[in-house]
Design a protein around this nucleic acid. Structure first.
Lengths: 187, 187
DNA sequence: TGCCTTTTTTGACAATTGTCAAAAGAAAGG
DNA sequence: CCTTTCTTTTGACAATTGTCAAAAAAGGCA
């Protein structure tokens, strides 16, 4: 759990009591490669911190799996739509490598918010940072060609290229696998 | 300010004292058509609530203006990246109609957070809802054709089609104006 | 009304990208 | 080591979309 504490403190330091209460509410989750953390059609009741490993979020569209994010070490993971709205989501979250996570339930988290306002502040701040990231992602998709998206990925997220298969990277970029393969061979 | 109070209460009701403190911190802003609320290269120091009117956020890419969101009545508006990170942003926010907003400064808002934790909770919840919206937007861009994007816009945001010009709508969808014009004539 | 400006439409063409199918290559497991 | 499975590459072709240029339509204003 040290990784989590360290990660938290980079966003917003919390009091010792808040940390103790939080760590008591956490459950360790081990996930083996290819198994699922969340499946579509269910309500995702937990927020996770990914300590070790790598995950992807995807949904099905016309029979195709569209990967729309990857999670790596020190990322917070959940099916945000489902976790926040308390409704079944369309999203699947799958481990791409054997992974270790820490999870907290929606109820436990909200109880902690009532007791420790610094924890709620922490989460607000993390939310804001994740919002900004998503916005940048959107800007990178909206009006760029396949090649520009790939070059941008090299700059901003080279770790994806190292750890993720070509097909899933292509899906993440919103282009076909064949096109990405061709672009890669031409650079 | 009734519109703001009503809007807030749909996300998370706040105490009367919190509302009184908040309303004291608000400044009314009138913006005439085509004028700017935020310009690129500056730090956006305020969060706004749009009471009346219509705005767009855009950035410049290779000499083109890329519109990436529209704001309408009862939306919260700011240059999120800049407001949150306290750094100059690339974003311009421009009024598309004469508009009325209520603004609060970053400092004032954070002081209120310290005094009224229910206000911070409100903002956390609003952030979460805006995050979900953005995620849906991303999913709609990532792997859809121009026609699918347009049809999706008809379903989810028909008000955009009524109030926004074709060229700006096309930009928002990430397609050229000519293509959107052709799609529209073929449906 | 008439003029000017802005927005939208249309045409022709080129460039980009997707799709389908098959081959080549790499990884996993007995 | 060989077999099986999964991933990546390549080719051919079609469909989609962008770009440039010009015309048409709509809107604003004196």
């Amino acid at each position: 759990m040290n990784a989590l504490l360290h990660c938290i403190s980079q966003y917003h330091p919390i009091s010792l009591v808040a940390w103790e209460a939080l760590s008591k509410a956490l459950t360790r989750v081990e996930l083996s490669r290819n198994s699922f953390l969340v499946q579509e059609g269910t309500v995702c009741n937990h927020l996770y911190f990914l300590e070790q490993g790598c995950l992807r979020g995807y949904y099905n569209l016309d029979g195709k799996e569209i990967t729309y994010w990857f999670g790596f070490e020190n990322n917070f993971i959940t099916s945000f739509y489902s976790f926040i709205s308390r409704k079944p989501g369309v999203e699947n979250i799958q481990a791409l490598e054997d992974s270790t996570l820490w999870g907290i339930s929606f109820e436990a988290l909200n109880q902690l918010f009532d007791l420790h306002s610094d924890l709620e502040r922490l989460v607000r701040i993390i939310n804001e940072q994740y919002y900004i990231r998503l916005e940048e992602r959107l800007m990178g998709l909206q009006f760029k060609t396949a090649r520009e998206r790939y070059e941008q990925l090299i700059e901003t997220s080279p770790h994806i290229l190292q750890r993720i298969s070509l097909g899933q990277t292509a899906s993440y970029l919103g282009i076909s696998q064949e096109t990405l393969s061709r672009i890669r061979s031409q650079v």
